[in-house]
Amino acid sequence: MPVTTVRWPDYFDEQAYVIEAKGWFADVLVEWDGRRYRPVFYDPVRLGQEITDELERGGAFFREPNLVVIDRVTREHMEAAIGALADGGFPLVPEPDRG
């Protein structure tokens, strides 16, 4: 099985309570099987707010690439989701190669 490397931003631990309260986080980089991924984590309440806001602004749809919905946006929940994604072959869109 490919190795999964998770790179958290330096500020994460200091700001973890703010990130959880916001219910959204997209600044973690995951390396899996030689590719890089940036999952976008939402809790269900925040996701519902984002969808409603977009549609009320006249958007025809809501789309978020690499969307992962978890109960709470904490390191523990994100790491569990990343592990499950890795077990499932990491079915997200990888970052473009910059080579």
Rank of each mutant, 00 (worst) to 15 (best):
M1G: 12
M1F: 06
P2H: 09
V3A: 12
R7I: 07
R7A: 08
P9M: 10
D10L: 13
Y11W: 15
E14F: 13
A16K: 15
Y17M: 07
E20A: 13
E20H: 09
E20P: 02
W24P: 00
A26D: 10
D27I: 05
V28L: 08
L29M: 12
V30Y: 09
W32Q: 09
D33N: 14
G34A: 05
G34D: 08
R35Y: 04
R35A: 13
Y37N: 04
R38L: 03
R38E: 00
R38H: 06
F41T: 01
Y42R: 11
Y42C: 00
D43K: 12
D43A: 02
L47I: 01
Q49D: 03
I51A: 05
T52G: 08
E56H: 14
E56D: 10
E56M: 14
G59F: 09
G59D: 06
F61P: 02
N66A: 10
N66Q: 08
L67T: 05
L67M: 09
D71R: 15
D71H: 13
V73P: 01
V73S: 04
H77A: 10
M78D: 00
M78F: 04
E79A: 07
A84R: 15
L85H: 05
L85F: 07
G89T: 03
F90G: 01
P91I: 04
L92H: 04
P94V: 12
P94E: 06
